[in-house]
Design a protein around this nucleic acid. Structure first.
Lengths: 203, 203
DNA sequence: ACCTGAACACCGTTCAAGT
DNA sequence: ACCTGAACACCGTTCAAGT
């Protein structure tokens, strides 16, 4: 029972194994030839599905953004007051980032910050959902600039917390505490007061 | 006038060129053989100064932490009220991180988060100086846990801001705004009130 | 349309040998 | 102590040829 000439499933298998390899060995350890070996095909075979190594990394980044988006969406689905929403999103953001550290590097790499293409679109979808963490106030008389500043401040805190945990400078527990403190500090800040006043009781 | 057998300066030259290469091509583009070529030595020569590629990367990370430390120290040297100190440190942190993005990756890589060795020590010195952004209150009756939480929250915000700029998700100007907003939000927060009350008028 | 396999130009690492 | 240069085992990429 020899393998057929056509694998039939190669692209999916390569992506799946690539993710395992990425997690275990990091980006540097991700080898196309090793991937081909594991899939039982010749080293030239991946070329039919990914034009080069970067194309495979881009596909991983795209997939990563989609999964990340799902996680944030799930966190947003949990009902509760606005403070609880932020904590919930923060937890989801940090957890995903820490559990997929090497993947996050790919996703946020300058290379992947393309101005078009599938990765760009997946990233755009992600940030759109993340924006949903703070729904538009019912009135509509909000200051868009203040809202942006508020959101970016929280996004930066989440991202930084994730980086510090991944770099093993702080523990996961300390990271969780940072998120909680950030949610509190933001709420009680002048910036937060402006932005959140019209949202109280929304979630 | 042929080159002498002993380069005499090879280690320093390799490190210097490696930093240029790191900035221009990223970590992936940093090749020992290319480095040797530029220095006019054989490809085996670097071995006498760096046992392997990672050893050179570690040396770069160590150097990076030392320079980063200097930048933070310079920012702290500027006199002013505590709010201004935080803005100043934040600017320095973000500027260095963005201007040395590839180097920062090395410095914060899990590989470099060693429990001993020169890199670990350089990192420890850095974080000690960063701690100095918030000097011990004169009274001494402060809550150490609250201070730690306060510092980590600000550190996470700086780090996250830098990452978002490097990933080209936000502009440098937006990043600067985040730092300013963070300084304000922290100050007016309950956490900030507890921690900073005994420090007002210190700087 | 998908895969093979040789070929090419790169790597990092090792190590005996030279100065 | 420092450097050379051959050797080895890996890469990614290209491309004619096979099915």
């Amino acid at each position: 029972m020899r393998r057929p000439f056509h694998h039939g499933n190669l692209r999916a298998v390569l992506l799946e194994q690539a993710e395992v390899m990425l997690r275990d060995q990091g980006v540097d350890g991700l080898s196309l030839r090793e991937l081909a070996r594991q899939a039982g095909v010749s080293h030239g075979a991946p070329r039919s599905h990914f034009i080069d190594r970067q194309a495979l990394l881009d596909a991983l980044a795209e997939q990563g953004f989609d999964r990340f988006t799902d996680q944030i969406r799930a966190a947003l689905a949990i009902p509760g007051p606005i403070r609880e929403r932020f904590r919930s999103v923060g937890r989801a953001y940090v957890d995903f980032s820490v559990d997929n550290a090497a993947l996050m590097e790919l996703m946020f790499a300058a290379k992947s910050s393309q101005s078009s293409g599938p990765v760009h679109n997946a990233a755009a979808r992600f940030f759109a959902v993340l924006d949903g963490a703070m729904p538009d106030p019912p009135g509509g008389d909000h200051d868009d600039d203040l809202r942006t500043r508020f959101k970016l401040l929280f996004a930066a805190t989440m991202q930084g917390t994730a980086t510090l945990i991944t770099a093993q400078r702080i523990t996961r527990e300390q990271g969780q505490r940072i998120i909680d403190d950030a949610a509190d500090a933001l709420r009680s800040s002048e910036l937060g007061a402006h932005v959140l006043s019209s949202l109280e009781g929304t979630g």
